[in-house]
Design a protein around this nucleic acid. Structure first.
Length: 602
DNA sequence: TTTCGATGTCATGTT
DNA sequence: CCAACATGACATCGA
């Protein structure tokens, strides 16, 4: 993905943005910015000593407070010096501070991360560099790629370089080297972006998250970057990349982002102390990391995630504005999708909606609408997500409509957008083409689970489905009274509550049924065991009985054989038998009718 | 294509 | 009478 996209990129600004993003990513991944700044500073100092650039020194001194910015500025200056930049230092601060700062950042990023690497590269490709320098800054970019072979190739190299950063600490001999570094850095960053698996995500997140704060910077960066490195950026980043990036950004950044960017930019410029600098980035980074965490996890494929990341970073105000439209679209779709509360919403509705919206809305935005749709589908699956999403969605839609409220809402929307859209984008980009059965299954399952949630979203019901379903009647009624809902919404809420309760009831019922079946089976087993036991007992009793009878019979015969009549003759068993009375006495009773029947007591 | 299990939903009865 | 619950029956989906 990345490889393909990279060639496509032709905008220096985009490259610059990518570089910046990469830098941030690197920072996130690797050490803290301060560390980087230090290294950069040291490097810069060395360079300065070697070159003894007055401008650089001044910048460094002045920006000591703004170490990060200063370092960047120095680097920029270096690059600028190398190129045509001597004057820019003052200009940057004054005329286009925004631009300068961004550029500085990018440079720093490059320097920090890949400075040593750049040095090495310079050494290796020194001849090339010189030629490039002589020719022109613009040429350099092209040359560098050639030296590396290709943007793709660059990817691998940068990482190693990063790892080797410590050793490479060679002072930059010439401006050419600096150029090389600058040029190489973007590529490296791009490569890093592609290459970095774990790191990339962070970086990605940083970039994505950064948008809110950093976006402002981007425009600034872009100009400078373009000035310094026109070719490399283009070669490195593809337009498609940018576009995708923009889409992601739009999602992450509210419609207001453009305006915010301008506003924020001044802040950055004004106070670029180290602390402020760090604050600026870290907060974003944290946010981004959080949001991107999902991406990484979802992204699954590193390459896809990386590709997406770079794209996002380059987002520009223009793109953002377009994106806002996309968001509005998503909300619209939702509404359209769920005119009815109940019956109308079949399972089909949710999935289908997603696609239609895309077609209609996505004109400019890449997959933002898609992402939204996916959110609609997927998020519903999880109850939590649904809740969170429902609110945001409605709010976002409103804000978009209003077109002004982006600021406050963007925060919420942003967070979610940053997380979801990106994640979704990542998934889409990474998985859409080769959708994993698991993903599909998961999505479907989620969509299935979230029908009511989707419906609630469609009608912009500002209530969590769980609340609607699980709240006690009183609380539920109170909640309903608080939120003035129209007929359709009320009906839907009631249906949701009914269905939700019935769903739970059905689940419980089935559970009970299963438990009952299991209990009956268990009882059946126990009864069978008892039956066997009883049969066994009976057989034993029969045996004992037979034995007892046998013994009794033998005893009887013995006793009977010992009986003698008056004449001393034994009685005939056929004519007499022994019988015991209730009182315990035993009598010899004649079997056949015998008038003579005598009784003899024993 | 058919079958089967899981799940959601509806209709209805019960509490 | 209403709400909640229980349950049989049906539909849908995915394996």
């Amino acid at each position: 993905m990345m490889e393909i996209e990279l060639p496509k990129m032709h905008q220096s600004q985009q490259e610059m943005e990518l570089i910046d993003i990469l830098w941030r990513q690197d920072i996130d991944l690797g050490a803290g910015r301060e560390v980087f700044d230090y290294s950069h500073r040291q490097k810069e100092h060395e360079l300065q000593r070697q070159r003894q650039r007055e401008e650089e020194e001044r910048l460094q001194r002045l920006q000591e407070e703004k170490k990060a910015l200063l370092a960047q500025l120095q680097l920029d200056e270096e690059t600028g010096e190398f190129v045509p930049r001597a004057p820019p230092s003052s200009q940057q601060t004054t005329t286009p501070p925004e631009k300068v700062q961004p550029a500085v950042f990018t440079e720093e990023d490059v320097g920090t991360l890949s400075f040593d690497e750049c040095m090495q590269l310079l050494e290796e490709t020194f001849p090339l560099v010189e030629a490039i320098e002589t020719s022109a800054p613009t040429l350099d970019p092209s040359v560098l790629p050639a030296a590396h072979g290709s943007p793709v190739m660059m990817g691998p190299q940068p990482q190693p370089l990063l790892s080797a950063t410590p050793p490479p600490q060679k002072p930059l001999p010439d401006l050419e080297q600096a150029w090389m570094e600058l040029l190489s850095i973007p590529e490296l960053q791009c490569l890093n972006m592609q290459m970095g698996d774990v790191v990339e995500p962070q970086g990605y997140s940083a970039t994505s998250t950064s948008p809110v704060v950093q976006e402002p910077n981007y425009p600034f960066y872009l100009p400078k970057m373009t000035d310094v490195i026109t070719v490399p950026a283009e070669s490195v980043c593809s337009s498609g990349y940018q576009s995708s990036f923009e889409g992601a950004f739009a999602g992450a950044v509210p419609a207001d982002s453009p305006g915010q960017a301008t506003l924020e930019a001044p802040d950055l410029n004004g106070a670029f102390s180290v602390e402020s600098f760090c604050d600026m980035f870290y907060p974003d980074l944290t946010d981004t990391t959080i949001s991107h965490g999902g991406l990484l996890g979802e992204g699954g494929s590193e390459g896809t995630a990386l590709a997406e990341l770079p794209e996002e970073t380059p987002v520009k105000p223009m793109d953002i504005s377009e994106f806002t439209l996309g968001e509005g679209f998503a909300s619209k779709e939702a509404e359209v999708e769920f005119p009815d509360s109940d019956s109308g919403l079949s399972l089909d509705a949710s999935p289908n909606n997603g696609s239609p919206e895309k077609s209609t809305v996505d004109d400019s935005s890449f997959g933002y609408s898609d992402s939204d749709m996916e959110e609609m589908d997927s998020n519903p699956g999880s109850t939590k997500s649904d809740y969170t999403e429902t609110f945001p969605l409605s709010f976002v839609a409103e804000s978009i409509q209003g077109n002004s409220g982006a600021h406050s809402q963007p925060g919420s929307s942003q967070d979610q957008n940053a997380g979801h859209p990106k994640t979704e984008l990542a998934e889409d980009a990474g998985h859409d083409k080769p959708p994993f059965t698991k993903d599909k299954h998961r999505r479907r399952m989620e969509a299935r689970l979230s029908r009511d949630e989707q419906r609630a979203k469609a009608l912009q019901i500002p209530l969590a489905v769980d609340l609607i379903i699980n709240l006690p009647v009183d609380d539920f009624n109170e909640l309903m009274s608080k939120h003035q809902l129209n007929e359709a919404q009320l009906a839907l809420v009631r249906d949701i509550r009914r269905r939700g309760k019935n769903k739970v009831a059905a689940q419980n019922c089935r559970k009970r049924k299963m438990e009952s079946i299991a209990g009956l089976e268990c009882e059946l087993d126990s009864l069978r065991e008892e039956k066997e036991r009883l049969l066994q007992e009976r057989s034993e009793n029969d045996t004992n009985l037979r034995q007892a009878k046998q013994e009794l019979s033998s005893l009887y015969k013995e006793v009977f054989s010992m009986l003698r009549d008056e004449e001393g003759k034994p009685y005939s068993p056929s004519e007499y038998s022994l019988q015991q009375t209730s009182d315990g006495n035993v009598y010899l009773v004649p079997r056949v009718k015998k008038t003579t029947g005598k009784t003899r007591g024993n």
